[in-house]
């Protein structure tokens, strides 16, 4: 992997969208006064279909709903914490509820998932949005771990006539998926590393953490798998259950609160109906805010979700599990 393989998800998404806007005059781009270098190019190219709604997230969602009712495909672009939580009731009332019997193609691009904005502190740490968005019917959540998934989304799912919440990582990340087909994409998850006894399940940035953990464990002789989740509502649960059923231990790893409806709950709901469900271990944030001025590594270390800590604990746990296994 070379540094040039690392991409900023926001920039890649905007470039892909600009390409679509050139072909499709029904695409509108609304920003809640949030920018990016790539966005400067887009707004110069499409001055009639780019609008800065200002620091007004509630109106941004309302206007997006109105444009969607008129048949436009709408992109809403903002900082993750603000575009997800400030207008939450607008998202519920004018997107989720309205989509029950109207075509509402509104795509909320939420930039700065999890602790992307590490040093900015807890107002900018977006660690609540996944449970909030999972709660809403008629709305898909797209949480990509890499640029390939973003390209696939823009080429396909962007056309779907329902609201979507798109959760983008703020830091540069490396590729995770190779040769993903459209049917693979629609399954909403992928076993990016096949393993034996233990499988880590994560989404977005944390999939990269899970891969680090897996490499550490593999270096110690274990054979861990990794599943990347990217369509958090529409994913093929039956197929995911089938994959996870092949493991003794499943580990959910998230940059969000434990026990309040995040990835841990999703994985639990998927494996629970199995006849012999794997053991589930969950790693996530304690239910509080971290006010320290800290890097993401430091924040993860404080929460116990950094790769070395997770790898060390899993190694112990797996050994304990083997030690207590009944002798045949």
């Amino acid at each position: 992997m070379t540094p040039t393989d690392r991409i900023i998800q926001r920039d890649l998404m905007i470039e892909a969208l600009a390409g679509r806007m050139a072909e499709d005059s029904s695409l509108f781009f609304l920003s809640a006064d949030f920018g990016a270098p790539a966005l400067d190019n887009l707004r110069n190219r499409f001055p009639d279909r780019f609008l800065n709604l200002g620091v007004a997230e509630q109106n941004t969602i309302g206007v997006a709903a109105g444009l969607a009712l008129e048949g436009f495909k709408v992109i809403v672009y903002g900082i993750a914490t603000f575009i997800s939580m400030r207008p939450f009731e607008q998202i519920r009332t004018s997107l989720s509820l309205l989509a029950a019997n109207r075509a509402i193609n509104v795509n909320i691009i939420s930039v700065g998932a999890g602790m992307s904005y590490d040093v900015s502190g807890p107002t900018h740490h977006c660690v609540e949005d996944l449970p909030l968005m999972r709660v809403l019917p008629n709305l898909e959540i797209f949480s990509p771990s890499d640029g390939g998934l973003i390209r696939m989304f823009v080429a396909g799912m962007l056309e779907e006539p329902y609201p979507k919440y798109i959760r983008l990582e703020g830091k540069a990340v490396e590729p995770v998926h190779n040769h993903l087909s459209e049917p693979d994409f629609r399954r909403g998850f992928r076993e990016v590393r096949k393993g034996g006894e233990v499988c880590l399940v994560a989404t977005g940035f944390m999939t990269h953490r899970a891969l680090e953990v897996a490499e550490t464990l593999a270096a110690q002789g274990a054979n861990p798998g990794v599943v990347d989740l990217f369509l958090l509502k529409g994913l093929d649960r039956t197929a995911l259950a089938k994959v996870l059923a092949g493991y003794e231990t499943v580990v959910s790893l998230e940059e969000g609160y434990l026990g309040v409806g995040g990835i841990d709950a999703l994985v639990c709901q998927v494996i629970n109906p199995l006849a012999n469900p794997p053991r589930l271990l969950s790693y996530g944030l304690p239910h509080g805010y971290n006010f320290e001025r800290a890097s993401r590594e430091e924040l993860h270390l404080a929460a116990g979700i950094d790769a070395p800590t997770v790898a060390r604990q899993l190694a112990h746990s797996l050994l304990a599990c083997q030690a207590s296994a009944p002798v045949p």
Binding site: L51, N59, G62, G66, L67, E70, F72, Q90
Partner: peptide, 11 residues
């Protein structure tokens, strides 16, 4: 009103 604004923009 917010939705109405979006509708007006769309029209």
């Amino acid at each position: 009103l917010g939705v109405g604004v979006g509708v007006a923009l769309g029209l």
